[in-house]
Design a protein around this nucleic acid. Structure first.
Lengths: 323, 323
DNA sequence: TTGAAAGCGGTACCAA
DNA sequence: TTGGTACCGCTTTCAA
């Protein structure tokens, strides 16, 4: 089953391949009579341009590599939607590679992307990732990359991140305004930058009110949250809760249900990326991080970089964008 | 920034491109001394084979198109995981195209896939899709495709679907075994095949017990479920609930919370694809549809088709697989 | 306005 | 064991 090529059309019409090629893309040089003939033949014989040959020729794949730490329920769909909306409208495709929270996989995926000649990379890093050593090659090869959400301290690539400080502070304010006096704040993995930055500003804010008692815990998964909160609630009571993420909220919620505290007058504030949680309990208050916005913004930044020729690239610290 | 090519290496080493090409892929004809030289040079000059040139030459993209009706929170992540696990291990990539529940988009995506020369297609259809007219071209071009989850009656392509009948029946049995007498069953869009098949077997089972009162409603979104259930609960009470999907469950859950029924002794059974809902309320019972399993199974089927040469393709009704 | 031809980076056949 | 070369399908420069 051979697919019709430009050469086939050229032979059938007794004209040259260059003429066919130009006619097909409505080049001004070509007479309209020829254009019509060519288009008809193309239509009739079901001609489909071979993207490979084109990409190969043009040295541009129109493909972006999306590397994510994991394919999670909470965040990815909205991110993907945001990315799709921008990339598809610009004629780009993207493929997803999941690192499964392993630095080694992440490193390998970068190689994969380089080998398959992606035009650019969108990456969110694993919890294990500590530096951007494995991204250096991208700079050498001048493959633009934008880091989003999960990142490390660096100034080589543009990054798009949520404003943790702002979100954590506002969450604290919400609890304060509700008059909460005994607050349990639940954070994720203590080693993550994101945890530290949310912790810091949350704590700072709360500490401006010496009368408030703050208890903080760190848990690496929803299940751990649940266990820890369960045992805490056996001995203490709280009138306010803070969960730094959707995942910590899942654990907290589960525990509150178990302890029959879900209908009491406690206040729960959470920094969230999802849209599902609104069904958990409509009384929870969300400081929403918008995945769609992040995805589309990161993709836009990447498209911008792609449009710059390499000579445009100013060798200075890349910008970080806060959403 | 030019990337090193085989030609570059050949010139540097004063040997032919064919020799370099063969040395690089460890061809038995090549002497080990040459192989070593070539590999060293490749290493030194950071040689990366150009997949485009290779694909172009070999007429195989190693890319699969994944077309989904929407990028939803509930199901997609696990599906993607399942697909990834199979495809990546076979050296394939895939890109995601979302139809946003529009038949027109779906049709266009098929074209896109054909144009970008994907080796195969995995597709889950929109609610609007009524036939496989738009897939006919795939057959002509001998592009293998596997339909999963959302499909229509057809026997041209292999399909992988959940066993709705089994799931609905088992869900009904669960409620019956709990001794529920007044059951509210919540279904999705009445026009969908999936709804009809779940409805039918659920109802059949329940009707074997004439003493049970069954009330069924159809709602197109979680929010609609919530509204409808809210007003129903004002006038009636139920001791058992059935939700045909994660989404209907979300609405139901929300409503139960609002009516303070979440800690009563009602029974809730749901056919679910997600993993999130376990945190909603651990007393809910799930008849789980495993997205990971579906994704990996569909991908495996596709890989199988890919391995067959076109002459292997037997022209007979394609099989459906039930999970 | 059209055509001839080179070439993108590999691969593989045929010859040496 | 190695080299020469045609070719995959398309674009683009140069010439006519």
């Amino acid at each position: 089953m051979k697919r019709t090529t430009i050469k086939d059309l050229a032979e059938m019409l007794n004209i040259s391949t260059s003429t066919v090629s130009r006619a097909l893309k409505d080049h001004p040089d070509i007479s309209s009579s020829v254009k019509i003939k060519v288009r008809e033949a193309a239509e009739t014989f079901n001609y489909v341009p071979n993207d490979f040959a084109i990409n190969f020729r043009k040295k541009s794949s129109k493909v972006i590599g999306l590397i994510v730490p994991e394919i999670s329920m909470f965040f990815l769909p909205s991110i993907i939607n945001g990315i799709s909306s921008v990339l598809n409208s610009e004629g780009y495709r993207f493929f997803i590679l999941s690192s499964d929270d392993s630095y080694e996989n992440e490193k390998e995926h970068i190689e994969t992307c380089i080998n398959s000649r992606v035009d650019g990379i969108l990456i969110s890093m694993t919890n294990e990732t500590r530096d951007i050593q494995h991204l250096k090659k991208l700079k050498e090869m001048e493959i633009p990359a934008v880091i989003f959400d999960k990142t490390v301290l660096q100034d080589a690539f543009e990054s798009v991140i949520f404003d943790n400080q702002k979100n954590a502070e506002r969450s604290a304010e919400k609890l304060i305004n509700h008059g909460c006096q005994k607050i349990l704040a639940i954070f994720g993995d203590e080693n993550l930058e994101i945890t530290q930055s949310r912790l810091k500003s949350f704590k700072n804010k709360i500490e401006q009110y010496p009368e408030i008692q703050l208890h903080t815990i760190f848990c690496k998964s929803a299940d751990v949250v649940k266990e820890n909160v369960n045992s805490l609630l056996d001995n203490y009571s709280f009138d306010g809760f803070f969960a730094m993420s959707d995942e910590t909220l899942m654990g907290l919620h589960s525990s509150l249900i178990k302890k029959n505290l879900n209908n009491s007058d406690k206040k729960v504030v959470v920094i969230s990326e999802g849209k599902l949680p609104k069904y958990l309990d409509e009384n929870y208050e969300y400081q929403i991080n918008n995945g769609y916005e992040m995805g589309s913004f990161a993709a836009s930044r990447l498209m911008e970089s792609l449009k710059k020729t390499s000579s445009d690239v100013v060798k200075q610290a890349a910008q970080s964008y806060y959403l």
